[in-house]
Amino acid sequence: MNRFIARNGPAYAFLLPWFLGFFLLALGPILASLYLSFTRYDMVAEPRWVGFDNYVYMFTRDRRFWKALNVTFTYVALAVPARLIMALVVAMLLDKGLRTIGVYRAIFYLPSLLGSSIAIAILWRQLFAADGVVNRVLADFGIPSHAWITDPNTSIYTLVLLAMWQFGSPMLIFLAGLRSIPRDLYEAAEIDGTPKWRQFLRITLPLLAPVIFFNLVLQTIEAFKTFSSAFIISNGSGAPADSLLFYTVYLFNEAFKFFRMGYASALAWVLLIIIAVFTGIAFLTSKYWVHYENERD
């Protein structure tokens, strides 16, 4: 017991604020939403128990639910790898022992601080608008202009691009991971005449695996929860033609536009389960591809 406290005490001490917040503020509403997901609740009249009706309707009759899943999965599949690759590339460029690294780190991190803000989403919408900056620049190169956001075939890519641009936080973590790889491994490889790309595949990637894993899980969860940028860029509706109907945007509209709080709660629980499943898969498969340095066999 004493050993447990000695080992884990500080960790729990640091977790305490989170625990307090969770138990005092979050747990009640979470449980309430579980209850509400089995009711019909328009936020004015009392909730009415309907059993599994919400869930049955969702899976059997709600076409927009499937549409929202489709949009969200597409986004996760594109945005997470795009952001991680971007983050890793920039981290490796910065990992050169520059003296001014702090400055660069801050500069590259900036978009992530700004990125989730409403202002950037509005800016993004204007950049990619039919008469926006992007089209004007493309026109200079003789490329015909395109309505990026209002064309349902391209609208989602503008959001993937936005996600990619916010590579700051995984980049910082990658950078720390790269720093912890012993230099002598590279030196040895250098002496053996191993080409750079091989060093990357055989040294950097395997030793970075735990950090990649961590970033992957975190960014996947983050991507499933994308809301504000999609909400702003689609004018709150998931338009054009539902091509930006992110799960969270659909959920918000069900809850606060059509006042189906019970149904929206059910949607929220399904999202939670989806995220849990994906995280679970990541953890289960991790033992095949993630190698921890201090692992004892």
């Binding site: 039919a130 309505a147 209002t150 064309d151 004018n235 509706s237 338009a239 054009p240 033609a241």
Partner: peptide, 10 residues
């Protein structure tokens, strides 16, 4: 008006 501007709702 062009369709790009039409499908932006409200």
């Amino acid at each position: 008006r062009s369709k790009d501007k039409t499908v932006i709702l409200d």
